[in-house]
Amino acid sequence: MTVEHLGRGPLERNEIPARVARDIPAGSYVNLGIGQPTAVADYLDPGAGITLHTENGMLGMGRAALPDEIDPDLTNAGKMPVTETPGASYFHQADSFAMMRGGHLDICVLGAFQVSAGGDLANWHTGEPDAIPAVGGAMDLAAGARNVYVIMTLFAKDGTPKLVPACTYPLTGLGCVTRVYTDHAVFALDQGQVQAVETYGTTVAALSERLQLVLAQ
């Protein structure tokens, strides 16, 4: 049953990662993508035993490094200086991606240009002729993490929906996204069915109309 939060507006930018953090079970191994997904770390319960993976070769990644802690040999996937936590480990790239493909990583949180109702993810390339493509670990995470969660605004700057019947941007992975966290709603995707878990400042009916999607409640 959808919870419609009508006494408020859409989620603020910093409220979305906080909402994601609430859905990450204690003890999980989690990879947070570059950009807004990185902010999820700020809202995790420090006592929940959640271990952060960074695909450039580390488990147990800590917070961003303060100026006097910066070590050029210790960076995250966004190449920003970070810290290590007790129990951290380092490993090479083949091991790091084996952790994903081998089904050992519980959750990854990624940004997206578009997500389809069937869980297809498009987040690596706009497809524009002059754009220089760069994929990094996005396709490996999409194919390998046991659960792929997406953080994005529900509508592009021009107002067009980003949760769509079928992606028009080049795909990163097929049928991999299970939850989508947006400013207007949280969605659960399952076998082509889209359920609105919570809405913020709007109703399921209004969103269904604007998205042109059938939304289960």
Partner: peptide, 8 residues
Amino acid sequence: LVPQGNLA
């Protein structure tokens, strides 16, 4: 262009 895990 090769996905990072495939490159490794």
